Amino acid sequence: MIIPELPAYLTSLGGEDYKGFIIALFTLSAGLSRPFSGKLADKIGRIPVMMIGASVCFVVGMLYPLLSFVGGFLFLRFAHGFSTGFTPTGASAYVADIVPYQKRGEAMGLFSLFGSMGMAAGPAIGGWLATLFPLETVFYVSAFTAIFSILILLKLKETLPNKERISLNMFKLKKDEIIEKRVLVPSGILFLCAFSFGVVLTIIPDFSTHLGIENKGLFFGVFTLSSLGIRLLAGKTSDRYGRVPVMRAASATLVCAMILIGLAESKIALMGSGILFGCAVGMYSPTTAAWVVDLSLEQFRGRALATMYIALEAGIGIGALVSGFLFANSADNFQLVFLSSAGIAGLAFVGLLFVRNKQGVALEEYM
């Protein structure tokens, strides 16, 4: 909800040179918290981990209007990332717990579908609210949506069979508790794909203004809506034919989308390329999650999903930083930024050509 307005808000605070940090700091803290959220999800349960994330989202959202200076804003962006560092890890593990293997891709597609609905409604509503009310209103509304998440979580039944009491030892990580090596291949591919997502989050608000689009959340709404329908189809297809073919199609589509965004010179062209970008995201998001769960051991499922999200946040964060550096607040650099991200997505496609598909095998054989 708040992302489309943040670049202009930071500029109003005198921090226009730090636009790349809007996404980068958020994803940095999310990535740093992932090993802890993965371990806690496997120890104390999925629901407590989700509750921590939702609570952080509420508290930080309420603080944005109070810490209205550059240093305070950047601190809150870092703190806000802990919400994403915890909730999706617990939620993904929860879904994986209750879904049979043969429908895992479909279930992850449905799970990500609801996430996309929020991603579509949030920026569009946030951009609309910002045209009617002070930006503080957008911050408060975004914070209170987290309350509804907490109310839902209170009604859920925990799926972790042998819960442990939380202790300080759980916050001491061993080397093998940070990254799950079994899922490094899909996580690496996700990193390369997520790079473009970081570019879009950082540069599209300014690019929209450059093209004369008043609602800077419009592109986010378009690409997220376009990803909705394809998520279920992509999940089902990956269940039937394997994860790798779907990931190849997703990465190829992503390359085309980023090239077309870079070449866009009108609102219609940008929205059209946004549809294609949404299709790519809708294909790779549920498929990667299902692929990671396929390769993970049940007792380390939280850690495996945390590894995936670390790669996701690293890709988004680095994409945001690099794009902010390349853009340098100059409209002449828009094309350079988007075409460079297309090249990174191309590396994902090339890498997938060397990954063997494992369609139709039992879970034990897959591992």
Results as ranks from 00 to 15, higher is better:
S285A: 03
V95F: 01
S196W: 09
Q102R: 15
N215R: 03
V99C: 06
G72Y: 07
L232S: 01
I203H: 03
M170H: 14
T224S: 15
A328T: 04
I275A: 11
V141E: 02
F69G: 07
I2P: 05
L270T: 08
A306V: 08
I268F: 14
E365V: 07
P134D: 05
C57F: 14
F114S: 12
S12V: 02
F207W: 06
F220M: 09
G122K: 01
A320Q: 08
L28D: 02
V60A: 03
W128Y: 13
G274N: 06
I152A: 06
L336M: 12
G61A: 12
T11N: 07
V60E: 03
G127A: 13
G351I: 01
D239S: 05
I178C: 12
L190T: 10
G221M: 11
V185P: 05
D97K: 02
T237L: 09
E164W: 00
Y140I: 14
K19E: 08
G282H: 08
P100V: 11
W291A: 06
L153V: 12
L270D: 03
F114E: 12
A257I: 05
V95T: 12
S149E: 00
A257C: 04
T253P: 11
Y94G: 09
G343E: 01
L353P: 03
S296Q: 13
S196R: 00
I150N: 04
I44Q: 09
A252F: 15
R46V: 15
A320N: 06
F327V: 09
G61R: 02
S92L: 15
E5I: 13
I259G: 11
Q335H: 12
G118A: 09
L352F: 10
D17S: 15
D97W: 10
A8G: 11
Y309K: 09
V293T: 15
P134L: 03
K172Q: 12
L363M: 07
V95K: 07
W291H: 14
P245S: 11
I261E: 06
L353R: 04
G53E: 05
G90L: 13
A130S: 13
T87A: 15
G360R: 13
G188P: 02
T89F: 08
S92V: 14
K163M: 04
F144Q: 04
A320H: 09
K19S: 15
K358N: 13
F325Y: 15
P245D: 08
A328G: 05
E364C: 05
L63E: 08
E214D: 12
